[in-house]
Design a protein around this nucleic acid. Structure first.
Length: 106
DNA sequence: TGTGTGACGATCG
DNA sequence: GCGATCGCCACAC
């Protein structure tokens, strides 16, 4: 992690409790770059500290799971999240109303 | 130092 | 409602 921004991203992701998720956009906003959602994704892709960086808890703003999930695939990611208590809708997306950790946390 | 790229997100047609 | 396009910004080369 070179910048404070990147550092903040990992810090925030690590801060997500079990059974909760967050979005790239929310993390980017919380890290100080409201339009840096893309950078968040790219940063997590680099994944400096996979041991303490639960990137499976980071999803799209609409609740969709990230593409190219490195831990095994979108199906595995959904399974892990369900196991942790994250609620999924019948659309196969995360219920952001319940599980969005940073929702209204600004 | 400059250019290209991408785990996003919003807007346009 | 869905696909295509643009903008954004850190990082790799």
């Amino acid at each position: 992690m070179a910048n404070n921004f990147t550092k903040r991203v990992f810090e925030l992701v690590r801060e997500i409790p079990r059974g909760k998720v967050s979005t790239y956009g929310e993390i980017a906003m919380a890290a100080g770059k409201p339009r840096g959602a893309r950078v968040v994704g790219f940063t997590l892709h680099r994944n400096d500290d996979p041991e303490h960086t639960p990137c499976h808890r980071v999803v799209f703003k609409d609740g969709s799971l990230a593409s190219g999930y490195v831990f095994g695939g979108a199906d595995v990611q959904r399974e892990i999240l369900e196991k942790e208590g994250v609620v999924f809708t019948k659309n196969g997306k995360v219920d952001m109303k319940i599980c969005n950790y940073l929702h209204g946390n600004f």
